[in-house]
Amino acid sequence: MIAARPAEGAAGRARTGISLGRRVRHRTAVVLVWLSVAIVLLPLAHMFAMVTSHAVRALSPKLFTTSTAGVAGGLENAIVGTIQLVVLATVAAVTLGVLGGIWVREFASPRAAFPVRLAADVLAGVPSIVIGYFGYVTMVTWLGWGFSLLAGALALAVIMLPYVLRATDLAIGRVSEELRDASTALGATQAATLRRVILRSALSGIVTGALLAVGIALGETAPLLYTAGWSNYWGLLPSFTHNPVGYLTYVVWTFINQPFAEAHALAYAAAFLLMILVLLLNVVVRRVIVRHTEEAR
């Protein structure tokens, strides 16, 4: 608290030590800060409550054990498809993004780094439907993969890539020069310093960026409409091309337009599952990271 607490006994006089104007400004600032918090949290809470209440009638074990049939059934195919798409996309985007971020920060000359950073920032701003359409033109038709897991996952990976790359770049940049010096002074090579100290220190920043990207990928619809298609079926070991995949956001996007209460409930259930998935992912991964950085091997 900024406002000084007046000393016991001399309370009356000490209070006059802080001008009325300052106290008013302090109070105003505190109120504004709390108001901002409320403005952010209330819509989130409202949305969560609304989605949950509508999803309730569809929430049953059946949701996880049956696939969609028309606009009814469960969400098994969509859940599995979403996981397959996002896992594959994450593997691709995190591999490329982390390596790219390391290169930009550690090895590239300023002249080489600038266009890469610029490209990443521009890519992050490209509307996802454009990336979806680009994926459709290149992978679905030109390469002839059809609506497929691989086309969908790569489209998602393109969307995730700039977030992972820039997060890696910035997280490495935030590691203090002193740590780097300390490692170098112990006779570590640049590669050893990078692997054992820099990446370790930057890990939580990199993971935060990757989680943000995974969250975005989980919630994407537009690029998948053009690349993954939709399917009522799923396979544990799917073919990467030529078979369309189902995913949760498709259910949200299309089922909500159907004139059936059961379809609506499924759409809300899909949204509910997505929210829970993002939440769980954040909690679990963060916990693992904290343990990994603080404890010894």
Binding site: S176, E178, L179, D181, A182, S183, T184, A185, L186, G187, A188, T189, R196, V197, R200, S201, T293, E294, E295, A296, R297
Partner: peptide, 27 residues
């Protein structure tokens, strides 16, 4: 790299690595 192994250095601000006490010394 070999030179720095023979000529160690301690800096102005303490620079513990983000790992355990043991791993810091064993680094």
């Amino acid at each position: 790299v070999t030179l720095r192994r023979r000529v160690g250095m301690v800096f102005q601000r303490p620079t513990p690595f983000p790992m355990s006490i043991f791993d810091n010394v064993a680094y």
